[in-house]
């Protein structure tokens, strides 16, 4: 299929960039190891691996946004997309072909993160597999953010927006580093108006085996993911039919 030919190119392009692999897979692992090393040396309990691992797994997804946005923005600036816009591929072919290779990458990233967490004391059980499934809607959300950013920004702006802003928002407003209940107030309200804390809470609930708590949180993520995807498709279509790729 035509769309798969392009999807396979995108997979190769992503996997052949060593930084993508290093950051996508390596960074969450390094973070987990680092935080656990800190924890091992202080008496008070800062992090609990059951709560930390889902948080880091969600945080790691922000790199998936960065990769997809960078790839699309680069394809635009190098005119590679212009060549492809002259081909019979449709806008939805393009979006799917960019998104498809990222999904297994996101799941693999989550899996590596949890496997690392096993060594740090996360109990090995079926709930971890459930958490990986729960991470799929957040993964689609982050992929959508990447597609949108890549469609409207230049590759330099992508570095700032997805590389700096999104990673920080994901880190601070997700309840990964500190309990949002401890901060409370406006900060907590903002965090729970955005999807990131909900994504982490859903994954935490899965790991904890608290199945009833997964879905209220996941609905937030699914809602955001759907809206962002629609906006991304519209933005991409505009680029495709517009005067400035």
């Amino acid at each position: 299929m035509k769309l798969l030919a392009f999807a396979s190119r995108n997979r190769k392009e992503l996997l052949r960039d060593p930084w993508n692999l290093a950051f996508g897979i390596g960074f969450p692992v390094v973070l987990l190891l680092l935080l656990s090393a800190i924890q091992a040396n202080i008496p008070v309990s800062l992090f609990n691996i059951e709560k930390l691992a889902p948080g880091i797994a969600v945080f790691g997804l922000s790199f998936i946004s960065l990769f997809s946005a960078t790839l699309i923005a680069k394809d635009r600036t190098t005119s590679f997309l212009m060549r492809l816009f002259a081909s019979p591929l449709s806008a939805s072919d393009f979006i799917l072909a960019y998104a498809l290779p990222l999904l297994p990458m996101a799941v693999l990233q989550g899996a590596v993160c949890f496997v690392t967490a096993f060594f740090l004391g996360l109990s090995v059980n079926v709930n971890v597999l459930l958490a990986l499934v729960v991470l799929i809607p957040p993964a689609i959300l982050y992929i959508g953010i990447g597609l949108l950013a890549g469609s409207v920004l230049t590759d330099k702006q992508v570095g700032g927006i997805c590389g700096a802003l999104l990673t920080n928002v994901s880190a601070w407003l997700s309840g990964t580093w500190f309990d949002l209940n401890l901060v409370g107030g406006a900060f907590k309200r903002i965090a729970y108006a955005l999807p990131f804390a909900h994504a982490v809470d859903a994954a935490k609930a899965a790991i904890a085996g608290d199945y009833a708590s997964i879905f209220p949180h996941l609905w937030w993520v699914i809602g955001y993911a759907a809206v962002i995807m629609v906006i991304a498709v519209v933005a991409f279509k505009r680029k495709m039919n517009g005067d400035n790729v």
Partner: peptide
Amino acid sequence: SPQEMAVAPNL
């Protein structure tokens, strides 16, 4: 064949 090369760099 566009004015810019428009090839996939990592392929």
